[in-house]
Amino acid sequence: METRPKIALFQCKWCLYSEPDQNWVDNELPSSMHLVKLPCTGRINPLYILNAVQGGADGIVISGCLPEKCHYKEGNLRALRQHDEFLNFLDYIGYERSRVRFVWLDLQDRGRIQKELADFKSEIAKLGKAKVLATRSKVSPGGQYA
């Protein structure tokens, strides 16, 4: 089990144009990968990533629409900015930057997500397991609507 890198895939629900690709991501993802489907990459709370890191995920993929083609005008640009900052922090605590990848998917990129994931997987396999950072415990988001 541990030989396979564990990858959390955060996907904006609009970014995959072709139906077969979306079907594959929805239903045929290997068990070492976990899909978190959200309305927009801007919806990804850094806490989700922190949780994945704390839980021992070896890599994180964030797939969204191209910068100019966000379904919510500019949600993906907000995400990019926010996560850039957050990745600095992860880097600081010892989670390498190369373990997080942004994938901008264009409308015409049929079959690209499979390739990207395979490519990322082999890269993470090279890096090996992620280090255990402090304790591995759940980070609670809290709040009524959280």
Binding site: Y17, S18, L107, Q108, R110, G111
Partner: peptide, 13 residues
Amino acid sequence: SLITEDPETHNLF
């Protein structure tokens, strides 16, 4: 509005 290509077979959608 769009043509996409199967990268393997080069068929077009």
